Simulated scan of single mutants.
Amino acid sequence: MTAKRPANPLALAVLGLLLEQPMHPHAMATVLRERQLDSAFKLTTGSLYDTVRALVRDGWIEATDTEQLGGRPTRTIYRHTREGQRYFVEWLDELIREPSREYPKFLSAVSYLGVLGRQRAAQALRERAAALRARAAEGEQAYRAAREEHQVPRLFVIEAEYAQAMLQAELQWVSRTAEEIEQGALPWPEAPDA
């Protein structure tokens, strides 16, 4: 029997963190931000707590303990249930084996690039390339900090390597396409009569 799959992809991050060690949602949020996984998952306090509640409700995780530091509120610590860990492994296996259709906004927008006109399209792509370079530099810095400063095993941050590879591939395509537009190598539709 397969369990009901969580609707929010943030569940993957929660379940992955709980493989490392039991923890409370505040600690989960801290680790996700440190590892810059908040760029892969929509992370808000509300979405995180909703996800944890759903995972508890559906039997994937359970409360194991509480802790209270100073005058702060009591925090509930969670861990995988035996079934939840099995469900998680099955879900991950499926997600890695079977490519699914994703609908990124950029892909939708770039399909209408010609609407911008040559100059504006090239400028937009150059601006995107600059933003991608900055994001790649931040990602590399966070990856290095996780590996070197925090001694996080490579396997626990391998998604950062994948994200960097995807950024580099996009950056290469965006830069090359902007150059082709600027050099006139990319055929462009004639501007409609006004």
Results as ranks from 00 to 15, higher is better:
residue 3 A to D: 09
residue 5 R to C: 06
residue 7 A to N: 12
residue 14 V to I: 13
residue 16 G to H: 02
residue 18 L to P: 01
residue 19 L to F: 02
residue 21 Q to S: 12
residue 21 Q to N: 08
residue 24 H to R: 03
residue 26 H to N: 10
residue 26 H to K: 13
residue 26 H to T: 13
residue 27 A to Y: 05
residue 27 A to W: 05
residue 28 M to D: 03
residue 28 M to A: 08
residue 30 T to R: 15
residue 34 E to G: 06
residue 37 L to D: 08
residue 38 D to H: 11
residue 39 S to Y: 13
residue 40 A to R: 15
residue 41 F to L: 02
residue 41 F to V: 05
residue 44 T to G: 05
residue 46 G to W: 04
residue 47 S to A: 12
residue 50 D to T: 02
residue 54 A to Y: 04
residue 55 L to N: 00
residue 57 R to K: 15
residue 60 W to G: 00
residue 62 E to L: 03
residue 62 E to C: 01
residue 63 A to Q: 12
residue 63 A to H: 03
residue 65 D to Y: 03
residue 66 T to M: 04
residue 69 L to W: 06
residue 72 R to A: 14
residue 74 T to L: 13
residue 75 R to L: 15
residue 76 T to F: 02
residue 77 I to G: 00
residue 78 Y to R: 01
residue 80 H to L: 07
residue 84 G to F: 03
residue 87 Y to W: 14
residue 88 F to H: 08
residue 89 V to S: 10
residue 89 V to C: 04
residue 90 E to M: 09
residue 92 L to P: 02
residue 94 E to Q: 15
residue 97 R to A: 15
residue 98 E to C: 09
residue 98 E to Q: 14
residue 99 P to G: 04
residue 100 S to M: 09
residue 101 R to T: 12
residue 101 R to A: 11
residue 104 P to S: 06
residue 105 K to H: 09
residue 109 A to T: 07
residue 111 S to F: 07
residue 111 S to N: 11
residue 111 S to I: 09
residue 112 Y to Q: 15
residue 114 G to D: 14
residue 114 G to R: 05
residue 116 L to Q: 10
residue 119 Q to V: 14
residue 120 R to V: 12
residue 120 R to N: 12
residue 121 A to P: 00
residue 121 A to C: 06
residue 122 A to K: 00
residue 122 A to V: 02
residue 125 L to H: 00
residue 126 R to H: 04
residue 126 R to P: 01
residue 126 R to G: 03
residue 127 E to H: 11
residue 129 A to S: 10
residue 131 A to E: 15
residue 132 L to Q: 11
residue 132 L to A: 07
residue 135 R to L: 13
residue 136 A to K: 03
residue 136 A to N: 11
residue 137 A to M: 05
residue 139 G to V: 03
residue 140 E to L: 14
residue 140 E to V: 10
residue 143 Y to Q: 15
residue 144 R to I: 06
residue 147 R to T: 09
residue 148 E to F: 11
residue 149 E to V: 10
residue 149 E to A: 15
residue 151 Q to S: 11
residue 152 V to F: 02
residue 153 P to N: 09
residue 154 R to W: 13
residue 155 L to W: 08
residue 158 I to T: 10
residue 161 E to W: 06
residue 165 A to E: 13
residue 165 A to N: 06
residue 166 M to D: 09
residue 169 A to N: 08
residue 169 A to H: 00
residue 170 E to M: 09
residue 173 W to Q: 07
residue 173 W to D: 10
residue 175 S to W: 02
residue 175 S to L: 08
residue 179 E to P: 02
residue 179 E to S: 12
residue 181 I to S: 02
residue 181 I to R: 01
residue 184 G to F: 04
residue 184 G to I: 12
residue 185 A to I: 05
residue 186 L to S: 01
residue 187 P to T: 01
residue 189 P to D: 01
residue 189 P to C: 01
residue 191 A to G: 02
residue 191 A to T: 12
residue 191 A to H: 04
residue 193 D to W: 11
residue 194 A to I: 11
